[in-house]
Nucleic acid binder design. Structure first.
Lengths: 253, 253
DNA sequence: TCAGCGCATTAACATCGATCAATGCGCCCG
DNA sequence: CGGGCGCATTGATCGATGTTAATGCGCTGA
C-alpha cells in the first residue's frame, strides 16, 4: 500500500486490504471500496471524531493509528467498548440511530477516510458480496464483544488484563506483521482499566503480578508476552479473527 | 399472523413482521422471508439447538418461545450472552465460524424455523435491502451488547438486575402488546445471575432490595415494574429498539 | 535548568459481592 | 399421601477489587 503523507490523496484501500484477506475481491469490488477512501482527514491524539448522543453524518474507515469507542455513564465512569485498528469501519452503529450510541476518540494521531451514508447504502446495494462481507465483520465484532462480556461477567481481573494484552497484540499484528512477542501498548493503565472494568490502581497490580509470574515483561512503555501459552490459558482467550468459514459467501460475479 | 399449531405448516413470517415494523417491505421481499420459515421444528424447554464448539449447518428464525445464547468457561461458569425472542434470527455467528462460538438453548417450549446457509446467502444477494436491514439488526444487537458490557464493567449489581428486568419487559412487549407493567419473567434467579455476572444468591438480595424500595413488585413468578422511571434511572437503561434512523436505507425496487 | 503535569507505583483501608451453609416452599411423581 | 427435588430465601463470613492518598519518575515547555 502506498505511504500516507499529510494531506495527500492516496490510492489503495485499507478496507479492501482487510476484506481481501478473507476472500478474493473482483476489480469492481476493489474500486468500489477505494471510492470510500478517496478523502482523508488527519486527526490528533485525543481528538473526538464523534460524540455520544450527537448525530453523526458520516462513516469512516480508519487508515492509520489507534482509536477507541467508549460510553460515559451517569456517574462519570467510562467503559471502553472497543479498540479500533487500521482497516476498521467506524460509525456504522451511529448511522442507524438518530444519536450516536458511542464516542469515537483517537488514541494516537490518526488518518481516517470519511464517507457519507448514501455512499455506504449504494455500496450495499451494488455489491451484495461486499454487503455480506460487511455483515461478516459485523458478526466477528459481535462475537468479540460477547467474549469481553463473558470476561467481565465471569473472569478475574488478572484474566481480563491478560486477555486485553493478547488481543491487542493480535490486532496490532494484523497491520504490522513485524510485531511478534513485544509491542508498545499505547494505552495508559487508566484506559486499560476502562476497557476491562477495573480501576487503574488494580490494573497496575495485575500487570505487576503477571510480570512477577513470568508471563509478561515490561519496560520503556513496551510489553513482552513471555509465556503466551500460559497467558492464553489464564485469559480464556480465543482469537476471533481465526477459525472463520466463509465458504457460503455468494460467488464473485 | 396465523396461529401456530403442532406440526402445521403455516404461512406468514415472524422475521417479516419484525423487519416490517421498521420499513415497508415489498411483496417480493415478504415472500423471500416467508420461504425461510417454510419448515418448522418444535423444541422442548431445556433443549439445546446448537452447542458451543460444534458446527452448525443451519440458521433459524425463532417463531415462538424464549431462548438464550450462552458460553461456558473453563471453570464451569456460564455467561448468558443474550435472550432471544420471536422474530430473532439465530445462529448467524455460528455460520461464519467453523465451530459455533455460543450455545443456543430453549428457555421455554419453542418453535423455530430452520434454513440453510445457501438460502441465507441467496437472500442477501437477491434482496440488497433485506441484507441492509439484517445488517441493521446485527448492529442493534451489537449496541445492546455494548450496553451490557458497560453495565457489567461499570455498574452495581442492583443496576444490572434492574436493567435486565426493563429489557426483558420491553422485548416481551415486542411480541405481546398486552404486557405493560407486569410479566412472568420465565427465568430462574440463577439464570438472571448468569446474564448479569452475579450469583443467584446476590440476585435474590437485589430483587428483594428493589422490592423493598418500592421499585418492583413480585408474586407467583411474576414481576411488576412499579416505579419504571426510578428503575430506568437506577439502571442507566436505554431501549435500543427506539431512536432508530433508517432513512438512508436503499429504496424499495 | 527547573517547574509542572500526567502517569505509574505502592500502601492502608473499605466495601461489594462471592461463598458456604441451612431452611423453606411448591410441585411432580410414585 | 409422602418423598424428593429444584428453586428461593436468608445469615455469616471471606476475599477480590475499589478507594484514598502519598511518592516517584520522566516529559515538556518556560
Amino acid at each position: 500500500m502506498p505511504r500516507v503523507g499529510e494531506g495527500t490523496i492516496v490510492s489503495g484501500s485499507c478496507l479492501a486490504d482487510v476484506l481481501g484477506e478473507r476472500v478474493e475481491l473482483t476489480p469492481a469490488e476493489k474500486s468500489a471500496l477505494e471510492r470510500l477512501e478517496e478523502r482523508q482527514r488527519h486527526i490528533r491524539r485525543g481528538a473526538i471524531l464523534l460524540r455520544e448522543n450527537e448525530s453523526g453524518g458520516e462513516l469512516f474507515v480508519l487508515r492509520k493509528g489507534l482509536m477507541m469507542s467508549y460510553v460515559l455513564l451517569d456517574d462519570g465512569s467510562r467503559q471502553i467498548l472497543r479498540f479500533l485498528f487500521p482497516g476498521d469501519m467506524l460509525g456504522i452503529s451511529s448511522m442507524i440511530y438518530r444519536e450516536s450510541p458511542e464516542t469515537l476518540c483517537a488514541l494516537s494521531d490518526c488518518v481516517v477516510c470519511p464517507f457519507d451514508h448514501a455512499a455506504f447504502s449504494e455500496l450495499l446495494t451494488e455489491h451484495p458480496r461486499l454487503a455480506a462481507l460487511i455483515l461478516v465483520f459485523s458478526q466477528i465484532e459481535r462475537v468479540a464483544l460477547t467474549d469481553r462480556l463473558a470476561a467481565l461477567g465471569r473472569t478475574s481481573a488478572k484474566a481480563r488484563v491478560a486477555a486485553l494484552l493478547l488481543d491487542l497484540r493480535n490486532r496490532l499484528r494484523g497491520t504490522d506483521k513485524s510485531i511478534d512477542k513485544a509491542f508498545a501498548l499505547g494505552l495508559t493503565q487508566e484506559e486499560i482499566g476502562d476497557a476491562t472494568g477495573l480501576t487503574a490502581v488494580h490494573v497496575n497490580r495485575m500487570l505487576r503480578q503477571l510480570e512477577e509470574e513470568g508471563l509478561i515483561g515490561r519496560g520503556s512503555g513496551r510489553v513482552t508476552l513471555i509465556d503466551e501459552r500460559a497467558l492464553a490459558r489464564a485469559a480464556n482467550y480465543v482469537d476471533r479473527y481465526e477459525g472463520l468459514d466463509l465458504s457460503w459467501l455468494p460467488k464473485a460475479r
